[in-house]
Design a binder for these strands. Structure first.
Lengths: 88, 88
DNA sequence: CATCTATTTAGGATTTTAACGAAATAGGTT
DNA sequence: AACCTATTTCGTTAAAATCCTAAATAGATG
């Protein structure tokens, strides 16, 4: 998919921290927001951008929206980067 | 070093294209600029940012400033990304 | 169905980024 | 020293990103 979207999404520290939070498993938007001193609305916008970049997926359960990593796009980005160090 | 600088630098398509141009070896700033329909000043600013992110190094020779990749920082970024897909 | 809770959307202020042309600098070369 | 040539720095402008508060939406629950 679009490397541009991926890289743009990864360029922001808040979004990277969100991704790291999701390493251990899916979490609802509210829980994610509580880890930051930022408004819920701001975190929601970051989540939306990560979703558009396809780095995360959402999954509804009860009253919550759980977000989780979508690893395939990470693999693409990793490959792009490895292209610099691997080849002779 | 600072992952923030690295990711910020990689988030821009012009800068990524510059990096790809340097895969095949060092090139002077002027040659790099010629591959884009952007002013020399703009490319110079991109090169400066890449240099601050430590993704490239400069090397003076005759009248030119040659830029070349600095692979160690690519490795750090690759490791960070692989941290998402590798671990269980 | 009325209400509560979780989350997003809208609108707006502030900061950052990307670009340009023009001027400045830094080295070579004559 | 004077002059090229390559590159950067300066000053400015326009567009995009980030954040906030307040209002809207969407589901679950009583």
């Amino acid at each position: 998919m679009a490397l541009q979207e991926t890289m743009k999404a990864l360029s922001n520290p808040v979004r990277r921290e969100i991704l790291m939070m999701l390493k251990t498993g899916a979490q609802p938007a509210g829980d994610i927001a509580q880890h930051f001193e930022l408004s819920q609305a701001t975190i929601s916008a970051h989540l939306s951008l990560l979703k558009h970049a396809d780095l995360i997926r959402e999954q509804k359960y009860k009253n919550y929206i759980y977000y989780e990593l979508n690893l395939s796009v990470f693999e693409e980005a990793t490959l792009w980067l490895k292209g610099f160090t691997n080849e002779k």
